[in-house]
Write a protein that binds this DNA or RNA. Structure first.
Length: 472
DNA sequence: TGAAATGTTGGGGCG
DNA sequence: ACGCCCCAACATTTC
């Protein structure tokens, strides 16, 4: 009877899981093991919101394995040492896993694979939840892509809406005593701040597919228009599910092409626009793989000595807490704090405000997002912040400064998003809602803060700093 | 996946 | 009928 360990990390699903399917096909029994090893993630150990999600996603996967007669074997500590201990105690002869592509993880897994094989243990890694692995695409010159559009043109032509792997039907699961309980991993917050998260999300594979169904039923049609409106659920909201590997891009692609033809004709701009967003996720993985220093330093060398303002804790605190006095910024930051998520357009606006109007370093923002987003993903977070800050590959030019007032007027015309997240302004008339500082009485009555900075003047300051850095 | 400043055009009011 | 001005709408440039 040969047993294989399935070393789970961020592939918390049963379906479309090449490592699991291979382990089932080649071995009689599979023992699922999760090892909590945040110390192996370097400077980017999972944040609080991410750990919350992880707890519930593990609970969901454990329930699924229990229905198959097994359970997740949980550990905490050094990954390789734990694997060796589990191997010894279970008599397993092989380890299977799905690849992750962050720099620190790749290195850890490379060492683990070598160490296992050295001991005569089979070690097999399989593609992660991605359309293409980050090293697969290259320009005609053989270089990594640095610009999204050519990357996407290449990738898009390779996509086929083929049927994803089913969950294995003959899964025999091994059990091993002596693991930790989920509670002992201590992933949940010690104080009860996660009510908003519980309300907004259903982590786990079943929740992921439910969300996909909601999206294909309601939101794909009209996506191009509706995705920009933060008051509406016009986006897929699949990002945390994708991050934890509860669902794969291939499953999504297949679902989108299996939809009712009347509602999504063969050539659907809505569907293509959404696939393009998944393309950005692939592009982020590609960039981080080829340029691993990007998590800490500007991608664009021109920004190596950019004059960011010194970190200002008072400013940062007001930004984090959603008390900048700029309605769209504050609404976004409060949505983030409450739900662990923020609408993407608003992410761009709050990031532009932090890096341009406040001229704080993008890493300050990236770290806060890292701690508070349920979909915090190193590749996406790095690319997104550097894109907005203007120092990234294929970035928005530095002088592209979002005006949070005109963005709100354009994308939250009725002010529904602002009112939802800014209860002190909920009764303000629309005319004052977008620029509450125009009415001193409103500020006094509502307790809503005066703006931290003047938008026009701080924009000018940012542009001037940019000019100086170009000259220097 | 920008915004503001500047330039151009054309319709309409008016003398 | 004509030139002139105003200004909104749109286009282009600049940061």
């Amino acid at each position: 009877m040969s047993t294989a360990i399935l070393w789970l990390r961020r592939d918390l699903r049963l379906a479309d899981h090449p490592a699991l399917s291979a382990a089932c096909a080649r071995h009689e029994r599979v023992l699922p093991v999760y090892i909590h090893a945040p110390q192996e993630d370097g400077a980017w150990a999972p944040g609080a919101a991410s750990r919350w999600w992880l707890h519930h996603s593990l609970a969901s996967l454990d329930a699924a394995w229990r229905r198959l007669g097994g359970e997740l074997h949980l550990r905490r500590g050094e990954s390789l040492a734990m694997l060796l201990d589990v191997l010894e105690r279970s008599g397993a002869t092989a380890v299977y896993w799905s690849r992750l592509y962050e720099p620190a993880t790749l290195e850890r897994d490379r060492l683990a694979k070598a160490a296992l094989r050295e001991r005569g243990i089979e070690a097999h890694s399989f593609p992660g939840a991605t359309w293409c692995e980050p090293w697969q695409l290259a320009t005609k010159q053989g270089d990594p892509y640095r610009v999204f559009t050519p990357f996407w043109r290449n990738l898009r032509t390779q996509l086929e809406a083929s049927v994803p792997l089913p969950a294995p039907s003959t899964l025999r699961t091994a059990r091993l005593t002596g693991g930790l309980t989920l509670k002992a991993l201590a992933l949940l917050p010690r104080i009860d701040w996660d009510a908003g998260l519980r309300e907004a999300w259903r982590p786990g594979e079943a929740g992921a597919h439910e969300q996909l169904e909601v999206f294909t039923d309601d939101a794909v049609a009209g996506y191009v228009e509706a995705r920009d409106l933060p008051a509406r659920h016009g986006t897929s909201r699949l990002s945390p599910h994708l991050h934890f590997g509860e669902i794969t891009p291939q499953q999504i692609l297949h679902a989108l092409f299996s939809m009712d033809r009347r509602r999504t004709p063969k050539e659907s701009p809505d569907r293509e626009a959404f696939l393009r967003e998944l393309g950005w996720r692939e592009f982020a993985q590609h960039l981080l793989y080829h340029f691993p220093h990007a998590t800490e330093g500007a991608f664009n060398p021109r920004f190596a000595h950019f004059p960011w303002a010194p970190a200002d804790e008072a400013l940062l605190r007001r930004w984090r807490e959603g008390r900048t006095g700029i309605p769209l910024v504050d609404a976004g930051m409060r949505e983030l704090w409450h739900t662990g998520w923020m609408h993407n357009r608003v992410r761009m606006v709050v990031a532009s405000f932090l890096t341009k109007n406040l001229r704080q370093h993008w890493l300050e923002g990236a770290r806060w997002f890292w701690d508070t987003l349920v979909d915090a993903d190193l590749a996406n977070n790095t690319l997104g912040w550097q894109w907005v800050a203007g120092c990234g590959a294929d970035a928005a030019p530095y002088f592209r400064v979002f005006n949070p007032v005109s963005q709100a007027q354009k994308f939250d015309v009725q002010g529904n998003y602002l009112r939802r997240w800014l209860p002190e302004l909920a009764d303000a008339p629309l005319a004052q809602l977008h620029e509450p500082w125009r009415d001193a009485g409103l500020l006094a009555r509502s307790g809503y803060p005066a703006p931290l900075v003047d938008l026009a003047a701080s924009r000018q300051d940012a542009l001037a700093a940019y000019q100086r850095s170009r000259a220097g």
